[in-house]
Design a protein around this nucleic acid. Sequence first.
DNA 1: GTGAAAGCGCTAACAA
DNA 2: TTGTTAGCGCTTTCAC
Lengths: 341, 341
Amino acid sequence: MTDTAPRPTLEAVAARAGVSRATVSRVVNGGDGVREPLVERVRRAVEELGYVPNQAARSLVTRRHDAVAVVVAEPETRVFADPFFALQLRGISKELTAHDNQLVLLLTEGRDDHARVGRYLGGGHVDGALVFSLHLDDPLPELIQRAGVPTVFGGRPGWSDGTTDVVYVDSDNRGGAREAVRHLVGLGRTRVAHITGALDQTSAADRLDGYRDVMGDADPELVVRGDFTPAGGERAMRELLDRCPDVDAVFAANDLTASGALRVLRERGRRVPEDVAVIGFDDMLPVAEQTDPPLTTVRQDIEEMGRLMARLLLRDLDRRNGGATPAAVVLPTTLIRRASA
Amino acid sequence: MTDTAPRPTLEAVAARAGVSRATVSRVVNGGDGVREPLVERVRRAVEELGYVPNQAARSLVTRRHDAVAVVVAEPETRVFADPFFALQLRGISKELTAHDNQLVLLLTEGRDDHARVGRYLGGGHVDGALVFSLHLDDPLPELIQRAGVPTVFGGRPGWSDGTTDVVYVDSDNRGGAREAVRHLVGLGRTRVAHITGALDQTSAADRLDGYRDVMGDADPELVVRGDFTPAGGERAMRELLDRCPDVDAVFAANDLTASGALRVLRERGRRVPEDVAVIGFDDMLPVAEQTDPPLTTVRQDIEEMGRLMARLLLRDLDRRNGGATPAAVVLPTTLIRRASA
DNA sequence: GTGAAAGCGCTAACAA
DNA sequence: TTGTTAGCGCTTTCAC
């Protein structure tokens, strides 16, 4: 907890190197158009003085901050219940770091925070924003969109009407769900159920759509609502067994849900996969590999999603430099076969 | 992805309100020493123009950034395996937000990143840093300490020699462990084992110390090394059962470890708590409540730890304003009784 | 109580 | 290629 020492300025470096501030500035920012010997002298002076540019002064004139906000709607239990958030963040961080950008994390807790976030984003502290819009009715994303900050969303925003060109990164939830259900059908299962996620999230809705793509004509009783949690999975599985005792396969909206379902199946004496085959979604390793039996599931590359979000945003920020305007990106999923189906 | 609109400046507000820039500045920063009618006029002008101060310009002169870096050593599987990180972050975020500070997240991935973080912290972009130093041999914390940025650590740093006054926030790991083991002993158990955490982390070492405080004279075979993961817990439990078949209680270094141990105990046909009582650490709800049987455990208030870290740092930053220099804080733990012990 | 003026440290025309 | 100069938008003495 030392006090801040007075830091050397461009001026000081210039004096020491015997050149002008402008030259030092050039060298510090890449050094093109400065002759080698001078570059060398400046470099040495920088070194000796331990000069570090003052970001505030630089931003003041460049209007660039080399900083990106990551906005996460917080009350989401889900954000904490699974490593989703952390993994995505890691991907984002890596990409940002690779391009010398800083990550400003904005966690929101409610109404008040929305205003705060809006103000912050509108306040020109950051060059852009990466936003996770988990719920259909979340007012935040639109608010941000209106703030006029370049933004990339994580997951397809629910309010996206297809008209406005929102940029987002998402997994192919629908396609992945289709693949899972097809696999179940291919196993010869005929009573394939689906435990949904929280349906106010597009990922859950899309997975349900995927299920219906394949099982459109199936007994509607086979679809039961969950909420992405193990507890929700248990509840749903019980309901399912009561309603349709002949169910022989379950596609759960995520691995956590599947783990809950598995527990109930065991409790009720159903063997997995012999009596009931189970497939999850996510391939969350600590969950999928620990269940009994290990979970067959649909993998999505979460870290890559984060990386991609950052990449799209940075590209957009650079579009003046000839880059094209990015559009939404949907990443493929993979079926991972383990023992449960 | 709109282009940035030209934002109004202090100058513009001053013109509109018919006052000087200085007066507007005063109003914007609290408004003391300005007469009410003027305050009112300025406020209105700010409102009408949608004025938001330019942080860069302000920082340039005040040398304050109202921003704090949170540094997390990343490769830590643990950071992603449990909600620890997210919870702590939430606490930090809340406190920071309450004091109008921004959270800049620095995730590090290795050697190269250390230099980068050092540079960033030394570069005066933030007013202080909150650092998680998980491993004893992590070079980062010391590097940061040397950067001269006010810093608060999360968890007692391993290299803290007691001489230098590092400020940190930690749970009473040792005391909590003692309480857990005493509870086991109080239950009449005589062969109380301990599955440790990753011993290169102070939290694990401290919990082991707590165990020894109570069981100092016990069979050393009863202590077996884990790594804070369920898999580690399984491995350790197997070893334990082989080595000491008469074990009648287990204190696991955390809930994840305990869940692994529980699994093995079930597999080997030992009843919990009848044959073997089990206690965890953390009270990580999604884990502790979902185990079978539900886990008795030592709770630590993780979010509060985060909040406290931020509070200590902010207080230090304000110490010029009469605050005292903060010291380390150790939070108490609570034993939560469920069914496993 | 209010305003005028001097920078904070840097970049970016423009001259040389 | 290098230097000179004029701000970027704000806070903060210092006069009034």
